[in-house]
Amino acid sequence: MKPSGFAYHRPGTVADAVALLGEHGPEAKVLAGGQSLVPLLNMRLAAPAHLVDVNRIDELDVVRVASVDAGQVVRVGAAARHSRVEHDPLVHAALPLLRQALVLVAHPTIRHRGTTVGSLAHADPAGEMPAVLALLGGSVTVRSQHGQREIRAADFVTGPMTTSVRADELVTEASFPVPPGRTGSAWVEVARRAGDYAVCGVGVLIAVDDDDRIRQARAALVSMGPVPVVVDLTDAVGAAPFDQADWAAAARLVTARVEPDDDIHATAAYRRQLAGVLTARAGRGAVDHAATRAEARARR
């Protein structure tokens, strides 16, 4: 189908964009990559009177690894494409989790156009990016005519396709903190077709001590409810050396914790089983990743 008519705005600066959002507020939607919004418009599930196209705001077309007091953070501006984040060598060296998850976001053709911040703002329960932000304890920066504020990941997604961003605010940037020390991560999914929405997706991030014990382990799950589910696995995997961690126990913990729903793609019981199986698989993947990174560091 075709979208209904709208007034098109293409501001050149963030100031102009937030002025438009301030003026049109709930009648406006922000248009970035359009890979989620335009299907909704084409199917007339949404019919905003105004679209504010942020694709040509140069100050939003930013991907960088920045140093902050607490270490490093990957900052991604609202006009930056998934593919740019995915292929940036500095981002990948600092935070491999981003590429691990991004390669599972639809297909390369979608990632050429879709934006990472757009995925966050869209807040699809099957979306990887809100779960990555939650797993890392990141944040987004939003701006309006009245100023700027940070929203922590835990306070950002409030429901399916719903965030705490107000109608007059623009998400300008996402901040993905780089976990300090020795870490490993992995992201695994089961989908009906390659690139399709995950029936279940799990990312696991581990931090390893100098004596090879897991100091911290966390999982983030998608398609397991209205918002990303983050589970602390540290106690479950035990204090054993990281290559002997008890991922079966972690799987049991996650299986008990998640509350997925039935839908046409899978039953709740199947999703819950997947959550456990994929947690163990991602956990072992994160261990392998930590070991590989340690070897790479030793070779340098």
């Binding site: 248009l31 890979q35 299907p39 593919s83 297909h107």
Partner: peptide, 27 residues
């Protein structure tokens, strides 16, 4: 499909593949 699933409308914009049904010409 006209909602970005089938890929039949794929064209190259500035050398990269995109779904032309998920973009407005004016963009």
């Amino acid at each position: 499909c006209e909602h970005g699933v089938c890929g039949a409308c794929t064209v190259l914009v500035d050398g990269e593949t995109i779904r032309s049904c998920l973009q407005f010409a004016v963009m």
